[in-house]
Write a protein that binds this DNA or RNA. Structure first.
Lengths: 217, 217
DNA sequence: GTCTATAGCCGGATAGAC
DNA sequence: GTCTATCCGGCTATAGAC
């Protein structure tokens, strides 16, 4: 049970190599060496390196999706959401999944076949976020004005994008998360303090509806 | 003047190939063919493909930085900021610079030498954003509570990350920008309607300062 | 399913002519 | 600065033994 067959080891090795050498440095030979199998086995099981990458994309996606859905299901405030996101990010940095996804996103920009798997997992990531937005805005003046689904996709996309830049272009702990926590607290205050119910704000919110919420797709 | 020397054409071709074939599909041969020069010339001018990529990273970065700095200098509201960002994004999609940057970020995650150029342009992108945040919060209850520099880096990083996912994992016009515009309007209202000055909010803002604003680096 | 061996192409990089 | 020619190593993929 703990002894994986060659097929599984190859897939596991692909994730490792993707994280370590990137999409630029990946090859059947390197993967085979990492998995400690012969090079021919890679092609026997997956046909081509491209097809293997497609399988890797599905794997990485499935891992992300199941974890995220469970963990985001129970948060009650924006601050909780950010705290949970921070923890999830740390885990994905440590296990290398995020580094692999970064390479797969670059590869998917070129090879259209890789996209559906990544898109599917992104949808599953955004879904619980939309649920939380719905709960948070329920009963406030924002209900019916903000559209939870596209907003959640924007929020999830921003966060995923930020994760992918971490360690390359910025340090997420120094910059983004620090400030996101502040914004989240601010958002929680605005949502809970009833300020949105004031006459001034209510009147101005009509303008938001006017130019933003009706989308002619 | 309109006739570029081989050296420049090679660099230009590198950007084109990066956007079209990605970091996985790039090679001295392909670049040479695109630039319509001999393969040897690539190595004569740049030494190695890796070094050429480093130069490409500096080029792409410089292009982004100068444009962004000028264009973000004059926005007056969050809504303006989002509108300008949308326009900048469209331009960078069309000219292929964004596609090249996407590949360079993936490459920089593996090769540390590529990072400084990308980081430098990111810093130049975040700087005007920090200035706008300073202006927008000046005179409100948020002044002194939000830390403009890390917040700007978080905002800029989220947006850049989102840009890099556009067309691969999501469609920025359908999801993110639509909702970002709504959030921006909402933010503008909160900032301008004076709701932040109410006693309830002022009291609660102390808590934000307590756990977020003092950073022990 | 897994191996060794091999075909044949493509890649980085250099030598030397112009 | 730019070219042609070339070396050699790595890469994908397949054939055939076990």
């Amino acid at each position: 049970m703990a002894d994986h067959a060659g097929r599984d080891r190859v897939l596991e090795a692909t994730m490792t190599v993707l994280a370590r050498d990137g999409i630029h440095g990946i090859s059947g030979r390197v993967i085979a060496a990492e998995a400690d199998v012969s090079q021919a086995l890679v092609f026997y099981h997956y046909g081509s390196v491209t097809d293997l990458l497609a399988t890797a994309a599905r794997t990485a996606s499935a891992r992300r999706a199941s974890t995220y859905q469970q963990r985001l299901a129970s948060v009650g405030t924006l601050s909780d959401l950010v705290a949970e996101a921070r923890q999830l990010h740390r885990e994905e940095v440590v296990n290398g999944n995020l580094a692999a996804v970064r390479q797969l996103v670059a590869a998917a920009a070129i090879d259209h076949h890789l996209r559906p798997s990544l898109q599917a997992s992104f949808d599953q990531l955004a879904a619980p976020v939309a649920d939380r937005i719905r709960e948070l805005t329920a009963g406030t003046a924002l209900e019916g004005i903000l559209d939870p689904t596209p907003l959640a996709r924007g929020v999830a996309g921003s966060f995923l994008g930020l994760q992918l830049l971490d360690g390359v272009v910025l340090d997420i702990e120094d910059d983004a998360l620090l400030s996101l926590e502040q914004l989240a607290r601010l958002g929680d205050i605005v949502l809970s303090a009833g300020v949105l119910e004031s006459a001034v704000v209510r009147r101005r919110l009509q303008q938001v509806t006017g130019t933003g919420a009706d989308r002619p797709r």
